[in-house]
Computed example of a mutant assay.
Amino acid sequence: MREWLSQLPVIGRLFTVPVPEERQIEPPSNPQLNAERARSRQLSEELEQLREKATRLDEQVRELEARGAANESKIQALEEMLADPDRAQNAIVYYQLREIWFACHRELVNLVKELSRHMEQEERQQMLARYRQEQEREATELERSLEDLAAEQEEIEQRRRKLQEELSRSQRIWHYFKRKRLTETLAGIADELKPVDAQMSDLRNRIREVQGREPPTFIGLSVEGRRQVNLAAIALAQYLYLRFRKDSIADMARSARRKPVHEAYFGPTDECLKIMRQIREVEGRWRSDRERPEKVRRRARYLAGMVKYKEAKQTAPDMKSMDHLQPSISAEGSEVVGDSTPLPVNVLEWDLWDLREAMLGAPPAAVEEKLDADQ
């Protein structure tokens, strides 16, 4: 009957029996099961990491196998080349030219290292000198302020001593009101001295803090310093090209740097022997040139007035500003009138002697931030 009445419209709602919602029963906590689940998740993550590592190792193995196959091919080609007397001489010339290339590269690297060390010492000393000057200036200003306060304090002290002397002379009974006035004035002077004493104490503390302050740490060579080092490297690269330009030794060395040995051909045996003699002669003249440092410095000074930079923080000059190489530079660092015309040789664009690898790049972010702060 109740179920039949609950189905009637409107009235049926009065006879509807509310059904309680089913409560979600939480399972009891199981520490051992939770630990096993956490361990399972950890093992899954470690397994995924091991799979990624195995994939990387497989890629490295394939890369090494490809390199090994390429090296085997090169060795086989070199063996075939050495087996032929004419081609064997070409291989000897090839490796001698490559040694010229890498010897010049070592010269560039050594120059950059040595010059960078000197430039860093110079900039470190300049930074320390500027810091000491600023420290001395700040301490001098504080001491001047302290002297002004000391003079003001002495003036107040003189006024107090005069009032105290006048008070000591005013001890008669009829001086009562005068003593009262003098006492009040002396109390005001004492209050006037308190802030002066506090300021003097603060200035003394600041002077001690300034004088005991440690200089900042040198964080690296500046953009200008890096530019000077790189210009010296470019000047040396140009100098080396001019030294090995005779008999096209520099051009042949560049060709040997860019192609494998089995593709090298410099001519028959007699021609190869001739090239080897030329290499020894040019290398001997290069290594015995006592004026090389001065010639490189002179060329670097000349380049400093010629090259351009696209950006303020760029350490390598714009390649377009180096399209030509001046064969001879005067002692003042300018072009010599009457010498041969400039050569269409851009050592930076050609990356001669692996020049770009030896040059200094942009300074670290900390140096750039300091430069921005100084500007």
Rank of each mutant, 00 (worst) to 15 (best):
W4M: 01
S6E: 15
L14M: 11
V17I: 15
V19I: 15
S29W: 15
S29I: 12
L33P: 04
E36L: 15
R39K: 05
R39S: 04
S40T: 10
L43E: 09
L43S: 03
L47D: 03
L50C: 12
A54H: 09
R56L: 14
R56C: 07
V61D: 04
R67Y: 06
A69S: 10
N71Q: 10
P85I: 13
R87H: 11
Y95I: 01
Q96T: 06
Q96I: 07
I100M: 04
A103F: 04
V112P: 00
V112Q: 01
E114D: 11
M127E: 06
R130N: 05
R137G: 02
A139C: 03
E143V: 05
L149R: 10
E154P: 02
I156H: 09
Q158E: 12
R159K: 12
R161W: 12
K162Q: 09
L163V: 13
E165S: 15
L167H: 12
L167E: 09
R169T: 06
H175S: 13
H175V: 04
F177A: 12
L182W: 03
T185W: 10
T185N: 14
T185Y: 09
L186R: 03
E192H: 06
E192L: 14
K194Q: 14
P195S: 14
V196R: 15
D197K: 11
D197L: 08
A198S: 11
M200A: 07
V210G: 02
V210A: 10
Q211V: 15
Q211F: 09
Q211E: 15
G212N: 08
R213T: 07
F218D: 00
E224V: 08
G225A: 08
V229C: 12
N230P: 01
L240F: 15
L240Y: 13
Y241C: 13
K246D: 10
I249L: 15
M252D: 03
M252W: 09
V261C: 14
E263H: 05
E263T: 06
F266I: 01
G267L: 07
P268S: 15
K274V: 09
M276Y: 08
Q278S: 00
Q278C: 01
R280T: 00
V282E: 10
E283P: 00
W286I: 01
R287P: 00
R290V: 13
R290C: 06
E291F: 08
K295N: 08
A300P: 03
R301W: 09
V307N: 02
V307P: 02
K310Y: 02
A316T: 10
H324D: 07
S328A: 12
G333N: 11
V336K: 02
V345I: 15
E349K: 13
L352D: 00
L355I: 05
L355V: 03
A365T: 11
A366N: 02
D372W: 07
D372H: 07
